[in-house]
Design a binder for these strands. Structure first.
Length: 311
DNA sequence: TTCCAGGGGTAGA
DNA sequence: TCTACCCATGGA
């Protein structure tokens, strides 16, 4: 938390305000529009008002609704809707999650300097660009990534929506707003119901196994945030998860801030073929050749090259 | 019907 | 390391 919070009580609940300091050149709209995750629950975005919404289940189990608005060049105004008065640990917990989701602590100055050298890229990377939206937990990013494999984006949305609607903890003042399900909730639900009710297909087995390993304490995905780990270290550990292959590992490691490897999927393959190889089929080495000059920033470079603001 | 979508696991060479 | 095949689901 960056400043003292204030809160007022009202019928049935409390509203607490919290200010968070953002880095220079931060742009909430650019960050929210940067990744398809913005349309997957529990994320919501009010484009007209520029307000980012999340429903979060805090460490103590209470569910809160959050709205984030950019109130100044380097200031974010957070409003917390709850049925209790959040204490200091709760506010710290909420601030940490927002900082993680919006990558407020990531140093992108080297990438920005590289973009500044080329007018083409300077125009492409909008002010505040580069901070790609992610989830507050590695678990949520892993689950959502598995939901993107070998399926359409529409089905990814449907699977995620059913997971949150059926398994997410509801907000006490509005049960239509739910947090992302915990590993415990998914483990308890079980593989069979994930397949039949969430319609995850063969992904049900992968998700059930990961949830059970997390819930039983045999797996700690948050440890992957350790700054001592390299991108290769992170991807190697992710590859040990069922359902996470080369694409999934590169996607999640990118979300963890390692941009040194491309996640090659049908989308990237198609983009590179169209824009660099006259629309003919391309090999992986031809794809790598396009972005290799960007070194440790190559995935981020691809992201802006493709103008990825997809939904 | 058949194909395939922001792939992954496995067997066999 | 590379290839072929299978895996659930649902839209075109």
């Amino acid at each position: 938390m960056d400043r003292d919070a204030t809160h007022v009580s009202h019928t049935g609940g409390t509203i607490t305000h919290l200010n968070i300091v953002a880095p220079e050149r931060f742009d909430l709209l650019a960050t929210c529009a940067s990744h398809g995750w913005i349309v997957l629950p529990p994320c919501r975005f009010d484009m007209g008002r520029g307000v980012f919404h999340r429903t979060e289940r805090l460490a103590g189990g209470q569910v809160v609704d959050l709205t984030v608005l950019q109130s100044g060049a380097t200031e974010l105004a957070v409003t917390i809707w709850a049925v209790f008065a959040p204490g200091i640990p709760d506010l710290q917990n909420i601030a940490d999650r927002i900082r993680t989701m919006l990558r407020l602590d990531e140093d992108l100055s080297e990438f920005e300097t590289l973009c500044e050298k080329d007018p083409r890229w300077r125009a492409r990377v909008r002010p505040g660009g580069g901070r790609l939206l992610r989830s507050p937990t590695v678990f949520e990013d892993v689950v959502k990534t598995i939901c993107t494999t070998n399926t359409t984006w529409a089905q990814t949305e449907q699977m995620t929506r059913r997971l949150v609607t059926q398994l997410g903890a509801p907000h006490p003042l509005g049960p239509e707003r739910r947090a992302f399900p915990t590993p415990e909730a998914i483990a308890k639900f079980g593989e069979d119901r994930l397949r039949k009710e969430i319609r995850m297909g063969y992904r049900a087995r992968y998700l059930a196994e990961i949830a059970v390993r997390l819930a039983s304490g045999h797996l700690d995905l948050e440890a992957l945030r350790s700054p001592t780990l390299t991108g290769d270290n992170v991807r190697q550990q992710l590859r040990e998860l069922p359902g996470i292959g080369p694409y999934g590992a590169a996607t999640v490691s990118m979300l963890l801030g390692h941009y040194d490897e491309l996640a090659i999927d049908s989308e990237l393959r198609s983009f590179v073929a169209t824009h660099y190889y006259g629309d003919r089929p391309v090999t992986e080495s031809e794809i790598h050749a396009v972005y290799a000059p960007w070194g440790k920033w190559q995935y981020l470079a691809y992201w802006f090259d493709s103008g990825s603001t997809e939904t």
